[in-house]
Every structure is written in structure tokens, then in C-alpha cells.
């Protein structure tokens, strides 16, 4: 099988500064100021072509960071990401211009994605139809409701026909009917054999749709396998996690970060 995504040993470091003084000193002096925070530490995983992978994990485990890195929006600090094909990220904040109308936003977005005039003309009606905006399509986007905005963003990203689709919590907005329509579109993609990545907290959707699950914890891969293997383990963990009080959670977190340090130490 051809590999669609290869993520090897990817680390993403953010710097936490106490104030502007630290930030400035870090920028102009060779010495390092501020505290390092690793959103991802030594993440490895591979996706075959046509895989549908769900990213799960509690808040702050690095799901969104990893999907942003795969989409090429955020650069990795170290490691290597290989993506075969064009990837498209769908997130709730789809990056629309508020002053422009829906139609102009479609054109602008397609232009930036590198489509020419003719292709844009062809794609436009499909997108408008899918977004169900009807007469609002020529109104400025700032007058849209949040559901309309995400529908438009979703419609654009889906209709440009990417090879790899990354969906970050985007299906949790919009009404049931639209969610169903999107899911059907996803299934269409699935049949076409496209690679998809799902980031969601809804385990129900994951079970229904994904084939493989990548479980992230503190920026590290905790488990990677089929839905049947990983989801029950994750559910068990969630039950435990819910029962823990704040002190226990902090202890657990500290243990996690210690493991992270070990991984990073081994690497260097």
C-alpha cells in the first residue's frame, strides 16, 4: 500500500514567556529565555492511502497541533512530515473575510488555493448549493450566523476535492440535517479512497466512521490501532479520568510530562 502520510519523530516546541521582557531577550540574545512547552514530543505514525484515522485524547493532548502540522499550517520544530497529495483542513474558523460576500469569499479562497478563473466558475455553483446559503450568498459574511459560516467553510474545503482531508471538530456545528449531509459527503470520499483525519470528542461519530484511532496523550502517542482495539481502552481511561480529583489529575499529568522528558532526552 502507498503511504499517504508519514510522520516521523515530530516535535513541536512552544515557548512560554513570563512577559515581554523575556520574549525580547530571547529574540535578540543567543541565550534561551522562557519556559519550553512541548505540544508534541517524538510523534511517529503512518497512514496508508485510503485510511480514515481519528485523533482522540483529552484537552491539550496535541490533537489540533498534530493536525495543523499535517495540514502544513504550523511548522514542526524537529522531525519530518511527508504528505503525498494536497491536504485540506476544515476547522470551525475557516478563515473567511467578513466584509466580503459569500460568493466573493468562495472566489477568493479558490484563487488562493491556486485555481484558475474557469475552474472557479465551475466549482462555484456546486459550493453554493452545498452550503445551502441561498439568497444570503451575496450578503457580507459578517451577517451570517455561526452555522452558516461553518457551512460555507465546509462546503469550500470539501468541494475543492483534496487528496487528504483533515476535519478538526468541524462537524459539531450546524444542525443535524447538515451534519448528515456532510457525513454522506465524507462517505463518498471514503468510497473514492481518500485519506481522512478526524479530530473530535464525539466517540459516537468516531466509531461510526473511522477505521483507525490515534490516541494522543501529553503530546505523545499512547496507542495506535483499529477502532475496536483503541476505543474501549480510551473509554476505560475516560471513566478513570472522570473519577480522579484535581490532585490525582495533577499527579497523572506530572508523570506524563516526566515520560515526555525521557523521550526528548533519548532523542538528543
Amino acid at each position: 500500500m502507498e503511504k499517504a502520510i508519514i510522520v516521523s519523530n515530530v516535535t513541536k516546541k512552544y515557548k512560554l514567556y513570563k512577559g515581554t521582557k523575556d520574549r525580547l531577550l530571547d529574540l535578540i540574545t543567543p541565550k534561551s529565555y522562557g519556559e519550553d512547552f512541548f505540544a508534541l514530543a517524538g510523534v511517529n505514525f503512518e497512514a496508508e492511502k485510503g485510511d480514515i484515522i481519528g485523533f482522540i485524547g483529552i484537552n491539550g493532548s496535541g490533537k489540533s497541533t498534530l493536525s495543523n502540522i499535517i495540514a502544513g499550517i504550523v511548522p514542526e520544530t524537529s522531525g519530518k512530515v511527508t504528505v503525498n497529495g494536497q491536504s485540506s483542513l476544515i476547522a470551525v474558523s475557516a478563515g473567511l473575510k467578513n466584509e466580503l460576500s459569500g460568493r466573493e469569499n468562495i472566489e477568493l479562497k479558490l484563487l488562493m488555493l491556486g485555481f484558475n478563473k474557469k475552474q472557479i466558475k465551475e466549482l462555484e455553483p456546486e459550493i453554493i448549493e452545498f452550503a445551502e446559503l441561498e439568497k444570503f450568498i451575496d450578503q457580507p459574511v459578517k451577517s451570517y450566523s455561526s452555522g452558516m459560516k461553518s457551512r460555507l467553510g465546509f462546503a469550500i474545503s470539501v468541494n475543492v476535492d483534496p487528496d487528504i482531508l483533515i476535519i478538526d471538530e468541524a462537524l459539531s456545528v450546524g444542525d443535524k440535517a447538515f451534519a448528515e449531509k456532510s457525513l454522506n459527503k465524507m462517505k463518498e470520499f471514503k468510497q473514492k479512497g481518500k485519506t481522512m483525519i478526524f479530530v473530535s470528542h464525539s466517540l459516537g461519530q468516531m466509531k461510526e466512521f473511522c477505521e483507525k484511532i490515534l490516541w494522543l496523550e501529553f503530546g505523545m502517542v499512547k496507542d495506535f490501532g483499529t477502532v475496536e482495539e483503541v476505543i474501549p481502552k480510551y473509554e476505560d481511561f475516560l471513566n478513570q479520568w472522570k473519577k480522579m480529583d484535581n490532585k490525582e489529575r495533577n499527579e497523572y499529568r506530572e508523570k506524563g510530562f516526566e515520560r515526555q522528558k525521557e523521550i526528548l532526552f533519548q532523542k538528543s
Binding site: G72, P75, S93, G95, L96, G114
Partner: peptide
Amino acid sequence: LRMLSKMNF
């Protein structure tokens, strides 16, 4: 920058 969600832009 936020709007230009793609790196190959």
C-alpha cells in the same frame, strides 16, 4: 496569515 491557511501559498 490566518486566512492563508495553506503553506504552499
